[in-house]
Design a protein around this nucleic acid. Structure first.
Lengths: 120, 120
DNA sequence: CTCATGTTCAACCGAAAGGTTGAGCAACGA
DNA sequence: TCGTTGCTCAACCTTTCGGTTGAACATGAG
């Protein structure tokens, strides 16, 4: 299993079936059998998916008689959102700055990237 | 390769090395060799990572002499953010509603989930 | 032309992922 | 008690993943 939490979360959501399960759980808690019903895979496979989601902290399971209701833990999403937003903002800021630079110097034969050979 | 874009993006970011590369590219464009330097893996391995990031739409490569500067495409992040926000909101809304329900009925022997046997 | 540099392609390898079947365990129902 | 239901564990199989090495390709420098 992946060591760091972020890898676990991203990796858990990299599978379309698991994303589907998350989407389903956003509506309300459900048992393993209920979750497995829509798919043409075995219950065991879905149980494995749930283990992955649980290890990622995206889901929790309680005990209710012999059933194991699965519950979505939405707060783990913040981990991803924070990571994403950080680099998105950084990239946008960089873009804005580059734009300023380009506006400031309309033409510049920079030493690092000579655009065309003008040796006529 | 994964068919749907969302799976590709999540799966691309599930690897810590690739997230690291993204973080590095947020500061500014870089060549493959520059990106490979900090890691103790071969340049080929990093090149593969970049291919994964490119297929996910997170990165683009231009041509500049024999170098291939890698550029971060931040707009793909929106895809993830939208997906995440949707289910986060949904789960929070559900939580709020459940809270209301619990507040409205302090004890209810519901037919679908009898919480406790209070037949004294 | 020849060579060095930067990058990718191809083939291979071990480990992990996602699936299966079959057995086992826990808790209710008769 | 015995069977049924709900779920998980264990073993196995196939595909994918991340890594390697070695060769190839593309381009600029002498």
């Amino acid at each position: 299993m992946a060591a760091d939490p972020l890898s676990r979360v991203f990796s858990a959501l990299a599978d379309p079936t698991r994303r589907d399960i998350v989407a389903r759980l956003a509506v309300g808690d459900a048992t393993v059998n209920e979750l497995a019903a829509p798919y043409d895979v075995t219950v065991q496979a879905v149980s494995k998916h749930l283990k992955v989601l649980e290890d990622a902290g995206l889901v929790s399971r309680s005990r209710e008689a012999q059933r194991r209701p699965v519950h979505l833990e939405a707060n783990v999403f913040d981990l991803m959102t924070k990571w994403i937003e950080r680099y998105r903002r950084q990239a946008e800021e960089r873009y804005r700055r580059l734009d300023d630079v380009l506006r400031a110097m309309p033409d510049d034969p920079s030493p690092t990237s000579p655009p065309e050979g003008n040796k006529s």
